[in-house]
Amino acid sequence: MSPPLGLALRWMECIIAVAIIQGTLELFAIRTTFADDGIWRWSTLRRELRWLQPVLAYRAFLGVLLVRLLAASLLLSGVRVQRFPYSGSRLCL
């Protein structure tokens, strides 16, 4: 990969990571709307989304947001998987 293209991809990674972090923090800021007495409470949503309970019930959803925040932070920090998926993956800092 030529250096300019690699640099462009790295910039895209950073921009996407910042957008995800910002969006996730905004969701944390309004997390009460997903709580058990909020607007999008699970007791209402589960009628249509029962199979998504492991990720959309309130506490599970907070966990999903946390994982999303962590993943975006890793992307922003430059952690990447090399040699994936050809011959065993490893994390590089």
């Binding site: 709307t33 007495d37 909020g38 607007i39 999008w40 409470r41 209402t44 949503l45 009628r47 249509e48």
Partner: peptide, 13 residues
């Protein structure tokens, strides 16, 4: 309707 229930939640909140 779920959307009706959600709007009701919104009003209650």
């Amino acid at each position: 309707l779920v959307s009706y229930q959600l709007v009701l939640n919104l009003v209650r909140s």
